[in-house]
Amino acid sequence: MTRQDNDDIGEDDLHAYVDGHLTADRHHAVEQWLADNPDAAAEVANWQTQNNALRDLFPLVATADDPLIDQQARIHAQSTPDETMTDDGITTTDTPATANTAPDTTGRRSRRANHPGRLQPFVNMADGPIGPLAPPAPGFYSDETLSENASPRRARYPFRQMAAAAMVFIAGGIGGAAIMETAIPKPAPLSLDYVQTLPEASRAGYGIYASEVRHPVEVYADQKDHLVGWLGKRLGISFSAPDLGTQGFHLVGGRLVPFAGKPGALLMYEDTTGQRLTLLVGHDPDNRSTGFRYQTSGNIETFYWVDGAIGYALSGEIDKAHLEDVAMTIYQQLGT
C-alpha cells in the first residue's frame, strides 16, 4: 500500500527475506515491495529455490556412510570412457544476442540447437532483456566446423549430433531472416575478423609455446608483478593474471604476442602433471561483448569470448567440461 515507505528496501533486505531473518513488519514490507517489482521478485524466488535445492543437495549426514560416494560410483559405472558431450561438429557457438533480439522461438531453438549438451553462452545474458540489445556478430551462424576428427566419442549420440547440425542450419536461416526483418538499433558490429582471430591465434599460441620446454614464457610467474604490469602497459589495459588454483592450474608466466595487429598477452598455466593451458588476451576499444564460444581443432580445445573491450581465448588439451570450468573461473575473476 504505502510504497513510498519502502524505498529503503535494498538487496540485503531481499537476502534476509529469503533467509527468514526479517522482523514480521519488515517481512511484510518487503513482500509488498516485491509485488511491485517483478524482476526482483523473480530473483528472490530463484534464491528461495536455490536454498531448498542446496538443503536437498547437502543433507545432514549422521555417519560417514556416504551417499555421494555411491552416487559417484553409479555415475562412473554408467558413463563410458569416451563419452564427452562435445558438439564437435558444431563448434563455434554463441547465441545470447540472438535470444534477445530474435523472436522467442527462434532464439530458443538456435540456442538449443547449438548446444545439445551443455550450454555456455552467458556473457550477454548478463545484459539480459533489460540491458541494451547486443547486435549479433556478423556471420553468427557461419559455424566454423574445424574439427575434422570424426572421433569415436561422437559415435554415442550420432542422432543428436545430426539433429543438432540440422537445427543449427534451420535456426540459422530463420534467425538470420528474423534479425534482418526486425528493426534493431544497431551499434557498430563487432569486427568479424577479430572474433575469428581469437581462437585461431589462441590455438597458434598454444601450439607454439605449450610444447616449448625451455622457454615457454618470456617472464616467469616469480616476477608476476612485473609480468602483469608489463603486459598491461603494452596492451593498454588494467590487467591481472587470473588465479586458477581452484582449477588445479598455476601460472607459469607470460609473453607478449602479436595479435590482430596489436600487442597481445599470452599467459601460460600448468597443472602438476605438466598439462598446460594458454590464455590469450587482446584489447581493442571497438570490441563488444559476446557469449562464450567454443571451438575444437585436432586435440586442442578453445573457449573464447569478448568481455567489454577485451578478447579472451583459452586453449588446452583437456576435456571440454574442465576447460569450461577454467574459462568460467577466468570470466568470474576478470569480469569488469
Binding site: 555415475i75 558413463s79 602438476t272 576435456d319
Partner: peptide, 14 residues
C-alpha cells in the same frame, strides 16, 4: 591438482 577423475565423469554426465 584438485581435479580428479570422478569429477570429470560427473561433469560429463550432466
Amino acid at each position: 591438482a584438485i581435479f580428479d577423475e570422478d569429477t570429470h565423469d560427473i561433469a560429463q554426465t550432466v
